Amino acid sequence: MFRKILAAAALLAVFSHAFAAVDVNTANEDALRGIKGVGPARARAILDERSAHGPYKDASDLGKRVKGMGGHTVERLQAEGLAIGPAQPQAAQAKVAQTTPAKAGTPQAAVAVKK
């Protein structure tokens, strides 16, 4: 009985790791290295390019900016769990947070309605 539970837990851990996406625009080196096909040199190249020139817009942007990563390599890494999320700088994210609508009944909501 214990062996069945242990085997089920191990299987669940394998499947949950396989489906966990790692966003190239937010991941650290350890997270990138967790993807099959990304070693220390490739992870460092991705991070260096991202810190020098900002987040990646899409898969083709990643392939163009990082040396040694063509279209097929990026596709293979995406199949392994690499995700390229929307490239929004932190300043843009903060602006979006500031422009969210206020809750009804608050003074900010009344001001927003009058405009």
Rank of each mutant, 00 (worst) to 15 (best):
A7E: 12
A87H: 05
P40W: 04
H72A: 14
A8I: 04
P89F: 10
L12N: 09
L82G: 02
K67D: 14
H72K: 11
T100K: 14
E75T: 04
A102V: 04
F15D: 04
G39K: 03
A13P: 04
G34N: 04
D48T: 11
D23Q: 05
K114L: 09
K36S: 13
L32A: 01
R50F: 15
F15C: 07
G68A: 12
A9M: 06
G81N: 00
R76K: 15
E75S: 08
Q88V: 06
A52S: 14
P55Q: 15
V111G: 04
H72L: 11
A20Y: 06
A109C: 03
A52K: 12
A41K: 11
A92Q: 09
T100A: 15
A83C: 06
I84P: 01
A18T: 00
V74M: 01
Y56E: 09
K36G: 07
G70K: 03
R50L: 11
S60F: 10
G81A: 00
A43T: 01
P107E: 10
L6V: 13
A79P: 00
A27P: 00
K57E: 14
A110P: 01
G39Q: 03
R76M: 02
P101S: 07
A102E: 03
R33N: 08
R50Y: 07
K67Y: 08
V38S: 01
A109P: 02
P86H: 13
K103E: 09
L12A: 13
F19Y: 12
A109S: 10
G63A: 15
A110F: 03
R65T: 10
V14R: 12
T73D: 03
E75I: 02
A18V: 00
Q93E: 12
G85M: 09
K67M: 05
A87L: 09
L82F: 03
Q98K: 11
L62Q: 05
D30I: 09
M1G: 14
E49S: 15
G105R: 04
K95T: 14
G37R: 00
V38R: 00
Q108Y: 10
V24C: 05
P40L: 06
H72V: 10
E29H: 06
L12R: 08
R33K: 12
D61W: 06
G54M: 05
T73S: 10
P89C: 10
G105A: 02
H17I: 07
K64T: 13
Q78K: 15
F19V: 15
E75N: 07
K67I: 12
K95A: 15
D30T: 13
L11I: 05
K114A: 15
K95Q: 15
A27H: 01
M69R: 02
R42P: 02
I46P: 07
V24L: 02
N28E: 14
G63I: 05
A97G: 12
R42A: 13
R65K: 11
Q108W: 09
R65L: 09
